[in-house]
């Protein structure tokens, strides 16, 4: 106790600060950083969950580099990102922009857009999976068949499957992004619009010169947030393709699904950890790049 009494006020403040910080620090250390560190370690080891772990050096990474499935999966992961992010950004902005101007049933409509975001991804994926089936049970194909158009293979196709899986994922995330955009729109001071009105500027100029530039922080947030989401896409893909996870012919398999499969079907923890480290690096680089690009000026 005497030790504490002899401290200066400043030092005492520090002691208290750390006392309060101890809990989150402990939490992060134990729940976040320790497993992350272990994952890095395991990526240099071989382990099947049962036996001892043995060191293998860079073997897992070399194997990954030479694995054609990995490159296919890598491409898919970026396809999800590069299609998903811009599409959801544009869609959510258009919806938010118009919803913001609308007074009639505003709350109800906003609720409708937000509803899919609150729905369980698993339930949603299964419903969409049935929508996509062939006749006699698929909603879309039954509609097509009833007007005499040939069936479309949505999921059982190497070209259509990825967009088909992505569509509900975009739709599910839309509600959240619409809300964020609307908050961004509301935060723009009305005086700018009034000034523009007095000057007699057209809506296009208002949109491109006032609204969009002032929405930049909102867009940065949404782009980073949804990019991370699409890079980590798993539940939609897994639940829509459980019969042939990530298929057909790996055409929808994202990195996270490959990790899951390697770890919990192949029990190859080292290889799975190496894939996780790669995913971590991708997430890190993409996020940093986006922050950099969108924040500059």
């Amino acid at each position: 106790m005497t030790f504490y009494r002899n401290l200066t006020i400043k030092q005492k403040q520090i002691v208290w600060a750390w006392a309060f910080l101890a809990l989150p620090v402990l939490f992060y250390g134990l729940i976040r950083f320790y497993p992350t560190g272990t994952a890095f370690l395991i990526s240099f080891q071989e382990w099947n969950l049962l036996g001892a772990r043995t060191w293998t050096g860079l073997d897992n990474y070399i194997k990954l580099w030479n694995d054609p499935v990995f490159w296919k999966v890598f491409k898919n992961t970026f396809a999800y990102l590069l299609i998903g992010t811009p599409v959801s950004l544009v869609l959510s902005f258009i919806i938010a922009y118009h919803l913001d101007k609308l007074r009639f049933m505003h709350g109800f409509l906003r609720m409708l857009y937000f509803l899919p975001f609150m729905t369980s991804a698993v339930a949603m994926a299964w419903v969409w999976r049935w929508f996509y089936q062939d006749v006699p049970i698929g909603l879309f194909n039954n509609l097509l068949a009833s007007v005499g158009i040939a069936q479309i293979s949505f999921l059982n196709s190497t070209t259509n499957a990825l967009p088909a899986v992505l569509a509900p994922a975009v739709w599910a995330g839309l509600g959240f992004q619409v809300i964020i955009f609307m908050a961004g729109l509301r935060a723009i001071p009305i005086s700018y619009y009034e000034a523009a009105k007095i000057d007699g500027v057209g809506w296009w100029t208002v949109l491109t010169q006032i609204t969009l530039p002032l929405l930049k922080p909102t867009m940065v947030f949404i782009v980073v947030f949804s990019s991370i989401g699409f890079l980590r896409i798993f539940d939609h893909v897994f639940n829509m393709t459980t019969n042939n996870p990530g298929g057909p012919l790996n055409s929808t398999k994202p990195l996270v699904l490959m990790i899951y499969d390697t770890a919990f079907n192949g029990f190859n923890m080292g290889y799975a950890a190496a894939q996780t480290v790669v995913l971590f690096m991708i997430l890190l680089i993409v996020s940093l790049l986006q922050l950099r690009l969108l924040r500059s000026e």
């Binding site: 059982n156 196709s157 190497t158 298929g247 057909p248 012919l249 499969d261 192949g266 029990f267």
Partner: peptide
């Protein structure tokens, strides 16, 4: 040795004929 991976090889075998 890994039933799900070995099954996957069979599924892909059929998909290649069915789709491609």
């Amino acid at each position: 040795v890994n039933e799900s991976a070995q099954r996957q090889a069979m599924m892909d075998m059929v998909s290649r004929m069915d789709i491609e």
